[in-house]
Write a protein that binds this DNA or RNA. Structure first.
Lengths: 235, 235
DNA sequence: CGCGAACTTGATATTTGTCAACTAAGGTGG
DNA sequence: CCACCTTAGTTGACAAATATCAAGTTCGCG
C-alpha cells in the first residue's frame, strides 16, 4: 500500500516498513464514494478519522440558504481532524467533489498509533499545522488579493499540494472543480470566477481543457499570485 | 495563580490543584510587553509556547509593502501553537495590540505536561481545534458576509471569547483595536471600517466610547451577523 | 499650547455582484 | 441515431459594494 497517505506522511517523516504495515493493519477499510456526497455533516460528532486516498473533497459551511463557503480542500493524503476524540460536534461539513476513495481510522487506531508509532502521529500533527497555515493563507488572499490573483494563488496551491503526493506533473493537473466551486472558495460570484479564469487564459498563463489544467508559465503565475511556497513546507 | 490560561483550560477540562501547580512550576516566567510589539516573526523557528495572560495580541501576515492581514486574535488564555517542536519556521508573525503580560512554556515543559498531565494537553489540543474553527468562520465571513455583518460578527466573537475568560461583561468589553486593525482583520479599508462602525452605531446596536464597547442589543447584533456561537463551544 | 495619531467626511473610481439570456456538452429514452 | 433535457459554462448590461484620494476634525499628551 504505497498510497497517498503514506506518500504524504513521508513528506514529514521517513516511515519504516513496520510503520507502514501498522497503518495498513489499523485501517477500518476503504470506501469508494461518488462525487458531491457529504462525508461528515456539521453538528454531528464524527466517529472516525477520514483519509482521502484518491479524489478531491472539501470542507464547507453554509450560511442563510443558497450561500456556501468552501474553507479548504482535502486532497489525496489529507485527513479529517486527528483529534476527533476531543471534538463534541463538527463546526463544518465535509463533502466529496470528485469520486473519492477513502480510508477510515477508528479513534482506537489513532490511539494505537500514538502509543506505538509516535512518529506517525507527529507527522499527522504537522499536517494539522499545515492545514492551519493554509487557512491563514486563504484569509490573506480573501483580504488582500484581487480576485484574479486569488484565483492564481489557488491554482498554485493546488499544484504544489498535488505534486507532493504525485498527482500533478511539473505544470499540470486534473482539476475537478466547477466554476461554482471556485467562486464558493474564493468568495466571489460564479460569473466573476468565470471572468477571472478567462483573464488568466487570455493572458496565456493557463490553459483549461475539460478538466485538465495546464499552467503555461508557473513562475509568472506565482508572481501574479504573490505565491510563497514556504507556507506549504513548514517542516 | 488563577490566571486566564487556567480559566480558559477549565472551559475544556476541570483541572485539579495538582495540575494547576504543575502549570505554575513549569512556566519559564512572565513577561510584560508594550503595545504594537512583535512577539514572533514569520520565518523564524519559535523556541517556546506563548500564553497570553493579559491583553490583546494577533497573528498577521504581510503582503507587498503596506498590506497587512490579521488572521486572528490571541486573547487572554490563548496560546501560540502547541506543536511548536514540530514547526520548522513560522508562516506568520504574532504581535501585541495592547500591552500584554505573557507566560512562556519551554518545549520541555510541554512534553512534561503531555507525559504527566495529559488532560492539560488534551485541553490545549481542544483550544487548537477551536482556533481552526475560528479561522474557518473568518473565511466564511470574508466570503459570504457584507462588511457590516462581518464587523458585527467580529464584535460578537470577541464578546463570547472574552466572556469565557472573565474579560467581558454581559454586553460590553474593552476593545483596544484601532479602526485600521479592524480593516486589516476584515479585509476592508480603514475608511470603510469607519463607516461600518458608524452604521452599527447609528442603528443603535453598539456604542463605542473611547476603547469601551457596549453592545446595546446582543441578540439583535448576533442576528445581524448570523452569529452561531456553537463554533466557539466545540467541547 | 501645539503636535501627531486616530478618526471622520465627501467625492469619485474600481471591483464585484446580479440578472437574464444564450451556447455548449453530455446523457437518455424513443 | 436523434430529439430532448439537464447541467455547466459564457456573455452583456446594469447595480451595488467597496476602495481610493484628499481634506478636515478631534483628542490625548508632552
Amino acid at each position: 500500500m504505497t498510497n497517498a497517505l503514506i506518500r504524504k506522511l513521508q513528506k514529514f517523516a521517513e516511515l519504516t516498513d513496520d510503520e507502514k504495515t501498522a497503518l495498513q493493519v489499523l485501517a477500518l477499510g476503504t470506501r469508494h464514494v461518488g462525487s458531491r456526497q457529504d462525508l461528515l455533516s456539521e453538528g454531528v460528532r464524527p466517529r472516525t478519522v477520514l483519509v482521502i486516498l484518491e479524489g478531491f473533497a472539501c470542507r464547507y459551511k453554509l450560511l442563510s440558504v443558497g450561500k456556501r463557503q468552501i474553507t479548504d480542500f482535502l486532497l489525496p493524503g489529507d485527513t479529517s481532524d486527528l483529534d476527533v476524540a476531543l471534538i463534541g460536534a463538527l463546526d463544518h461539513s465535509v463533502a466529496t467533489i470528485s469520486p473519492c476513495s477513502i480510508l477510515e481510522l477508528s479513534t482506537a487506531a489513532v490511539d494505537e498509533l500514538a502509543t506505538h508509532h509516535p512518529r506517525i502521529v507527529d507527522a499527522m500533527r504537522r499536517m494539522g499545522l499545515m492545514e492551519k497555515a493554509i487557512l491563514r493563507e486563504r484569509i490573506v488572499g480573501m483580504g488582500l488579493r484581487s480576485a484574479d490573483r486569488q484565483l492564481a494563488h489557488l491554482l498554485c496551491e493546488l499544484l504544489i499540494r498535488l505534486q507532493a503526493v504525485g498527482h500533478a506533473g511539473s505544470n499540470s493537473y486534473r482539476l475537478p472543480l466547477r466554476q461554482q466551486d471556485i467562486g464558493d472558495t474564493l468568495g466571489i460570484s460564479l460569473v466573476h470566477a468565470n471572468r477571472m479564469l478567462q483573464q488568466l487564459r487570455d493572458e496565456g498563463l493557463i490553459g483549461l481543457d475539460g478538466r485538465q489544467l495546464v499552467i503555461h508559465n508557473v513562475t509568472a503565475l506565482m508572481e501574479r499570485a504573490e505565491f510563497k511556497r514556504e507556507y506549504l513546507e513548514l517542516t
